[in-house]
Amino acid sequence: MERRTFLRAMIGTGATMALGFTMTRPALGYPAQTGTSPYGPLRPADANGIMLPEGFTSRVIARSTKIVGGTSHTWHSAPDGGACFADGSGWIYVSNAEISSGGGGVSALRFDSSAQITDAYSILSGTSRNCAGGATPWNTWLSCEEIDRGFVYETDPWGSIGAVRRDAMGRFKHEAAAADPDRKVIYLTEDESDGCFYRFVPNTWGDLWSGTLQVLAESNGVLDWANIPDPDGSPRRTRKQVSDARKFNGGEGCYYRAGTCFFTTKGDNRVWAYDAATNKLEIAYDDNLTDNPPLTGVDNITAAEVGDLYVAEDGGNMEICIITPDDVVAPFLRVTGQSSSELCGPAFNPVGNRLYFSSQRGTTGSSSGGITYEVTGPFRTAA
C-alpha cells in the first residue's frame, strides 16, 4: 500500500498515527484536500506568462538589476520573502535579497493610493542569504539570514531608522518569523533537515533587544517550550541543545493569525498548524495525505484577511496555491516558462486587493533574472 493511501486510511478509521501530533475533534478537517478553488479554474497565461482565474490581472513592478520605473533604485537580485505595510493611503512592499557573501539585504517599494510606485530604496545591505522573515505589529520587518549561525535583522520599511541585528533571537539557519501579539512572542523556523520550531519571548513586547529563545519540545506526546541554553549556537548548534526538541524537515514560511501559527516544511511537503491556545500541533496539508495534490515544494506562506492561506512553491509547477478555511487546496496562479525559478514573497497590500510576489530567478534561471509581480482582482472578503 502506498504511504498516501495508508495514511489517509488511518485518518478515515480514526486510528492513532505516530506523526507527532494529536488528532483532536476540531482538527478532523485537516489535512486539506484537493478541491475547486473559490476563484475557479486558471485561464491561459497572460502577457506576463501568468495563469490566473477569471477577473484577475498581473503586472511586472520590478526586475532584478534594473532601475525601478520612476525611481533611481536598482532592484536587487534573487528577491525572496516580503511583506506589505500601510503608508498613509498607500503602502510599502519590502523584499529580501537571497544573495550570499554579504550581497544580501532588503529593498522597499513605496506605492501611492493608486498603486503607482513613488519610491524605491534599500533598508538593509551587507548581509547574507536574506531568505524570508516576518512583519511585526509595530511595523518593522524582520529579515532572516539563511546561513549557519545566521542572524535576524530588524529593519524599518520607511528607511528612516537603520537596521539593527537582534542577537538575542538566536543564531541558526533562520528562515521565517511570525509575530503572535496574543502571547507576545515571535515564532521562528529553521531551514535544516533536522531543524526546529522556535519562539522568542522578548523581555518587553515591542523591544527585541533582549529576551528568551525557546524551542518546541515533545516528551511522551506532550508539547512544551524549552529554553535554549546558548542562543549563540557555538560551539553546539541551537537545534542540538535540547534533547527532546521536536524536529522538522526543512522549515520554510511562517504566518500567524487568530491563535494559530501556520508554517511549512519542504522536506516532507507539509503545512503545519500550531494552535498556540491549546498547545496542539496538526498537519494542515501533506501531499501524501491528499489525492492528486496540487501543492508541492511548499515555501513562503501568507494569508488573506478572509482566512485563505496562500502558499508559494519552490519547485512543483511554479504555483501559488490557496488553502481555504474549509480545508480545500487548489491552485490560485501559475507562472509559466520559468521552471528554473521559485515563487516567493507573497504578501497582500493593506486593503487586500493586491497580491505581491516574486519569481526569484525569472526566465533566465539566474539570480539576476528575478521578477517581482503584482496581481489585482476580486479577492474575496468573506469565506
Rank of each mutant, 00 (worst) to 15 (best):
R8G: 08
I11N: 12
T13S: 14
T24N: 13
Q33E: 14
G40E: 06
G40T: 04
G40Q: 06
L52A: 04
G55E: 02
R59E: 15
V60S: 02
V60T: 15
R63A: 11
S64Y: 02
G69W: 00
T74E: 13
W75C: 00
G90S: 06
W91Q: 06
A97H: 12
I99F: 01
G103I: 03
S114C: 07
T118Q: 11
Y121I: 06
G126W: 07
R129F: 11
A132F: 04
W141V: 04
D148G: 12
G150Y: 03
E154L: 07
P157Q: 00
P157V: 00
S160Q: 14
A163Q: 06
R165Q: 15
M169Y: 07
E175V: 12
A177G: 02
A177C: 15
A179Y: 04
E190D: 12
Y198A: 09
R199E: 03
F200K: 04
W209Q: 13
L213A: 06
L216K: 00
V222D: 10
D224K: 14
W225K: 07
I228A: 05
P229F: 10
S234R: 13
A245R: 08
R246L: 15
R246D: 10
N249S: 15
A258C: 11
V271Y: 09
Y274D: 00
A277T: 13
I283Y: 07
I301F: 06
I301L: 10
T302D: 01
L309F: 03
D314H: 12
E319D: 03
V329M: 08
F332D: 01
S340P: 00
L343G: 06
P346H: 04
N349V: 01
L355K: 03
S359N: 08
S368K: 08
Y373W: 10
F379T: 01
F379C: 05
